[in-house]
Simulated scan of single mutants.
Amino acid sequence: MAIRLQYDNNTCEIGVYSKLTNAYCLVSSTSGSTNFFSGFASKLRGVIPIVMTSIGESGTIGTLCVGKKNGLLLPHTTTDQQVQHLRDSLPDRVLVQRTEEPLCALGNAIACNDYFALVHPKLEKETEEIITDVLGVEVFRQTIANNELVGSYCSLSNKGGMVHPDTKVEEMEELASLVQVPLVAGTVNRGSPAISAGLTVNDWTAFCGSDTTSIELSVVNSIFKPIESHPDFVIGDLRKPFIDTYV
């Protein structure tokens, strides 16, 4: 069952202030985030490291960075001290790299699971190569429902994905064939199409903004299939040799 959370008692856009993967979870270190951290810790403590951090002078870490089990990409606004803090705090197998990509809100420009990434069509070629090398994924330049900020309007795990509610069936079928997981069009936080702002997931856990309705929550649970307790494995190959599309 997906868990509802709120940031700083007044914000339901939890994906803006966190980044969840199969190998680690990042949580904003800005003031007022103690209860937010506790919400993640209640499910993840002792399973994967939960690291409090900021990027540059901002606490909107989910918007600014992109990561999966193999690596973490940071924008050019990240300080040397922040980069070192993350390298010291994350598992040794996780590559941490800062990029010079002009589109510094990497979380808005890139959506990925552990195998594939959908990226903003105008991303620098060098950034695309870094994504491949650091995250270990195959990269596809795409839009979602005519939106170039694919990271804002899509959330992916190795088990499924949710996309902008205006995504057409034909487009979902094409995207599903690229990322090789079933997809569903939906919303979070009472009708918001900004999926990644109100939702953060890995292969066994999902956290939604506190405004997410019961119907929206049921869609999240059906596509991402979070489980009640953490799995016996933490990092595993859950890739499935099938493509299915929810409409």
Rank of each mutant, 00 (worst) to 15 (best):
K225G: 01
S192W: 05
E124Q: 11
S31M: 12
M1G: 12
T167R: 02
N35A: 12
L103S: 08
F40Q: 09
V234P: 01
I110K: 04
V137T: 12
T34M: 07
I50H: 11
A41W: 05
S192F: 05
C154P: 10
Q142E: 15
L199M: 13
C154H: 12
R45D: 14
F40H: 13
P193D: 07
S31R: 14
E216R: 09
F224N: 05
R239D: 09
T213P: 03
V219T: 14
V188D: 04
A145Q: 06
A145D: 08
G161D: 05
L5T: 03
Q142V: 12
N10H: 09
A185P: 03
R98L: 02
E57F: 06
A185I: 04
D211E: 15
K69D: 07
E173C: 12
G39K: 06
S192V: 02
F140H: 14
D211N: 15
T99P: 04
A111F: 02
S210E: 13
L26W: 00
Q81M: 11
V201N: 09
V96L: 08
K19L: 15
T30H: 09
V16W: 02
P182W: 03
F116S: 06
T77V: 15
A176R: 07
E57Q: 12
V96H: 09
V220R: 08
D80S: 14
I243P: 03
L64M: 10
V94L: 00
Y17V: 10
S31P: 05
S222L: 04
G136L: 11
L73W: 08
D114M: 04
V169N: 13
N202Y: 04
V27Y: 10
G107P: 06
S155E: 13
K19E: 09
T213V: 03
F207D: 05
H120V: 07
Q84G: 00
M52R: 15
E138D: 13
I48K: 04
E124R: 10
V47K: 12
T132W: 00
E170I: 11
Y153M: 00
C25N: 01
